[in-house]
Design a protein around this nucleic acid. Structure first.
Lengths: 238, 238
DNA sequence: CGATTGCTTGAATACTGTCAACTAGTGTGG
DNA sequence: CCACACTAGTTGACAGTATTCAAGCAATCG
């Protein structure tokens, strides 16, 4: 996943131009005027928990920017096997370059707010702003790198290591958003974590319990405190 | 992986402009003049088997287009665990949007020919050709979709299904290049396949042998004949 | 308050990995 | 040209990890 920010997270309950002033934000080369114009092309949409933003196979008419909450992106097979390809946090952009149909689905984990811009309007907006395309390319490059990381985890890490790496990178992302990570909030369900890491719910529970017994973490309701976690994945610092 | 063609595969032993006439080719909106100019910015480089094109962590000064042969892209951990993120065939573009350092390594599987263009020159070339960036975005979107497919396989498919899906998609790619796929050539080693599918060499061998005993495939030196393979993955047609 | 859902744990199973041995093919050097 | 070494591929036996099936608990929701 790992996209950059389009608008400042929580500060964006209402459309206001200075929200983009965030350092490193998406389309960071956009001026306030540009940004106001861009946002005016779309609309603010609220989703309830578990509600679907878009479904794989459906025509991709809009692109999305998470404003509030947590969105999970996943690919689902006919037989209900599900692989969560990533979690999107406020500031993350979804489906910005999708042509034709969505290749993945997206659903809100909890209540979420999303800014949705019709694809054709966005394309028109970008067409006379060359720097926008460059930003998108950089965004997608980061997403590809992130996908490679996840492929490595899924293919070459054991359950425990996958979990630890996931927890650490999740903490890093929240830190970048300026969130409190002590203890680390885990708004997604065990099933979501399992479907993200290519494991079963039971293995996730058991592995977390094992880490807790070892003193590496502390399991709290909806949260996990990371204690001595780095020592567990010593060889995996690449 | 799954990138589009920059130049026609084998027809490109020497730089010639009409090589891009391939339908659906990379930068398909480029005219012959543009293309000649683009290629003149780079050079043709030959690699011996196993030779390294670039290494993860090293500064990404060039982008690459495979002209001949097969290149494997992989991410390697300190402890020699390796995840092959994809195989690049003639026409595939590598590292076109990488900023900073390479996030993956690339090595020739057999003898290979690659066109290499310095990043800054390419950027300059693209800077006054807006349509080039659009093509790159489309290219990267396809790569992301492909990465999602692979994440699903690694996370949610058993060894046999991974192998079968891999064989089928490999055949499809060769077919798109107009190659003979009967029987299907497998130029990469068993270890490469294992490192691509998140398995061990032994599991790859055993699973292939099992498929052969079942009459789904026929194992030949360097090749595999696909017989009744689709029936094996009936539920996996998503 | 009952029922559903999410989380956790246990026991048994199945799959994949590890270790080891063997074969065949390749290449090298005598 | 042959002997040797080396690598890739294959198979077997065994171990270990993750899944499956099952049950219990806790929290949430009508």
């Amino acid at each position: 996943m790992r996209m950059t920010k389009l608008m400042a997270a929580s500060s964006f309950a209402a459309p206001c131009a200075n929200a983009v002033a965030q350092p490193g934000g998406f389309l960071s080369h956009l001026g306030p005027a540009d940004l106001r114009q861009l946002m005016a092309l779309g609309e603010r949409v609220s989703y309830a928990a578990q509600e679907v933003l878009f479904t794989q196979g459906a025509p991709a008419g809009k692109c999305f920017s998470v404003v509030e909450g947590l969105v999970c992106l996943h690919r689902t097979e006919l037989d209900n096997r599900r692989q969560i390809t990533g979690f999107a946090l406020p500031g993350d952009i979804l489906q910005i370059a999708t042509q034709g149909d969505h290749e993945i689905s997206a659903a809100a984990i909890g209540p979420a707010v999303v800014w949705e811009i019709p694809r054709d309007k966005f394309a028109q907006f970008a067409s006379h702003r060359p720097y926008v395309l460059s930003e998108i390319v950089a965004l997608m490059a980061a997403e590809i790198t992130d996908a490679h990381d996840k492929m490595f985890s899924l293919g070459r890490r054991a359950a425990e290591e996958r979990l630890v790496v996931f927890l650490m990178s999740w903490r890093d992302r929240l830190l970048q958003l300026g969130r409190d990570v002590e203890p680390l909030p885990l708004p997604m369900s065990r099933r979501d974590i399992a479907d993200h890491l290519g494991l079963t719910v039971e293995t996730v529970c058991r592995t977390l319990a094992k880490l807790e017994r070892r003193g590496a973490i502390q399991i709290l309701p909806g949260r996990i405190r990371l204690l001595d976690i780095k020592s567990v994945v010593a060889p995996a610092l690449a």
